[in-house]
Write a protein that binds this DNA or RNA. Structure first.
Lengths: 167, 167
DNA sequence: CCATGATAATTTACGATTCAAATATTAGAG
DNA sequence: CTCTAATATTTGAATCGTAAATTATCATGG
């Protein structure tokens, strides 16, 4: 694929170094994400007594004031339907969201934020955004733009790789 | 903090756009990581019948042939001690790792790969590395280097942010 | 109308994860 | 030596997450 001048760098060696480079890159990316995510989880818990998945679900609903079906939440949150059922149950118990019957299709509910849920979410979202700005604050504007562009490349490619099956 | 020439871009507006930029960046990063991680989990499960956490634990042990204490595993894997206990239990049941008594400190164990565990791990690691190369293959060599450097900046900063406590 | 297949959500069983509390051992001050 | 504090691990309860099976409803061809 690529030309190389060094005598040592035959296909074999190059492949290996490419491999460890990609692997290290992935491990670093994973570490960064986990680091930030752990901070967010911890702060949501100590300051608002909420978990990240519940916050995420509310966040989806806030963007869709007309409400969402369980299956739509599942797709958007990239988790299974069973999981959404559980998280929704708890938010309903806490009075932050409601399941409304859907007259068009009695198999499906419409899940919506309650007024209380919307009010509380707005407060949390404000803090959440500050935390993100703080945690990503080590990068300059330009670096963040570069980063965003690189992630777009990654997302497009990785998202296109077929699920499994192949060896 | 930064000067701006546009009349519209007062502090308020700029702050807001910086905020949503950082937020979008974070959401994209999270989505990418989850996408790749889900692929790896799925493939480890279908092709080797193992979970990602178990693979990770074995991976740590493979890098430390002399074995590791539970607490060291916990630190390196960035998970709680209780979690390590559970994952180790299962790997012990499967005969892939052993808990050895530590004569120096009877509170602590030394966890090691068994010969069988090491053999199996090597096979899995080989495939794992291929998958990573495949999934990150959308980026050029240069892009991967840039990405790695940007992650270093992020890791340093985010790792330095104090845990919680502050408003 | 009705049989069949697709779709929406839930349930069940299990693994992973966290936090907080409990247990066991070590280390150090007096 | 003994009390106390620190360290290493485990346990238990709660949440999150997946996959597979189940239930209820819809939609369509005959």
């Amino acid at each position: 694929m690529k030309k190389t001048k060094q005598a040592q760098s035959d296909t074999e060696t190059r492949a290996t170094s490419e491999h460890t480079q990609a692997l290290r890159l992935w491990l670093r990316m994973l570490a960064c994400t986990n680091l930030i995510e752990a901070q967010i989880r911890s702060r949501l818990r100590t300051q608002f007594g909420i978990t990240l998945p519940r916050f995420d679900l509310m966040s989806q609903l806030e963007r869709s004031p007309e409400g969402l079906k369980m299956g739509e939440l599942s797709k958007r949150m990239m988790v299974t339907g069973g999981n959404v059922t559980g998280i929704t149950d708890q938010l309903v118990t806490e009075g932050l969201v409601v399941r409304e019957d859907n007259p068009k299709d009695r198999r499906a509910y419409i899940v919506k934020l309650t007024p209380e849920g919307r009010k509380i979410f707005k407060k949390m979202a404000e803090s959440h955004e500050k935390w993100i700005v703080e945690l990503l604050g080590g990068m300059s504007e330009k670096e963040r733009q570069q980063f965003h562009a690189l992630l777009a490349v990654l997302k497009t490619h990785a998202g296109g790789v077929r699920p499994d099956q192949d060896r």
